[in-house]
């Protein structure tokens, strides 16, 4: 499993997939591979990125290798009836086309074993509301990078909370111009300063 973790860390996708296949053929439990090797190494990759030891491409290559391993493991987990730890709906608010920050949060969440429903960019409030209804997520993540779309975010949060008043889905927000004060002002539950904090927040909801 140490080798598997190393392959993911250094972005060796083909080797990751082959190692996963090999370990499963040798009788390893896919859940153990996920929980004891793949998720921890993605946590480590996230921490290395956070500290500046890893560059963005290195993290993205690691995430791609993780994905190649997951492509082998996922069908086995599904066949066994094992569900993801929880679901998160995520998207960039209407009018905003930036998706890098959102994608980094997706990588952190998927790397931690969550299912992420990515609604993409320029997402109207109605699409968030419908996705929450369809997927019953632990949390919904809204991203914005522009000062002009921060106002759209405020409106989107209000509409989600009105539409799902009983369910009280947790709303986390992120994006360069945002901060804790803005999260409080628009009644969001959490402001994620980075992908790791967003992941920790969702983990805290379990």
């Amino acid at each position: 499993m140490k080798k598997l973790a190393e392959y993911i860390k250094y972005g060796k996708g083909v080797e990751t997939a082959n190692r996963v296949k090999q370990l499963i053929n040798e009788g390893a439990n896919p859940e153990t591979l996920l929980n004891d090797a793949m998720i921890p190494v993605m946590d480590e990759v996230g921490a290395l990125f956070q500290s500046g030891e890893f560059f963005m491409p290195e993290m993205l290559i690691a995430a791609r290798a993780m994905q190649q391993g997951m492509d082998i493991i996922k069908p086995i987990l599904v066949a066994k009836g094992i569900k993801p730890m929880g679901t998160v709906v995520i998207g960039t608010v209407e009018g905003d086309l930036h998706d890098l920050g959102k994608n980094l949060v997706i990588i952190a969440l998927e790397g931690a074993g969550f299912k992420v429903v990515d609604l993409g960019v320029d997402v109207p409030a109605a699409k968030f509301i419908n996705a929450i209804k369809d997927h019953n997520p632990l949390a919904v993540g809204l991203s914005a990078l522009l000062s002009s779309t921060m106002l759209v975010m405020k409106d989107t949060v209000a509409k989600i909370q009105k539409a799902h008043a009983e369910k009280k889905v947790k709303i986390m927000i992120g994006g360069a111009p945002l901060n804790n004060e803005f999260a409080q002002e628009i009644n969001a539950d959490f402001f994620g300063v980075d992908p790791a904090s967003a992941k920790d927040f969702v983990r805290s909801l379990l």
């Binding site: 890098l100 994608n103 990588i107 990515d118 993409g120």
Partner: peptide, 13 residues
Amino acid sequence: AKASLKGDYLESY
């Protein structure tokens, strides 16, 4: 955007 939506964040980046 196409690369991002199919989950290929490296290519998208």
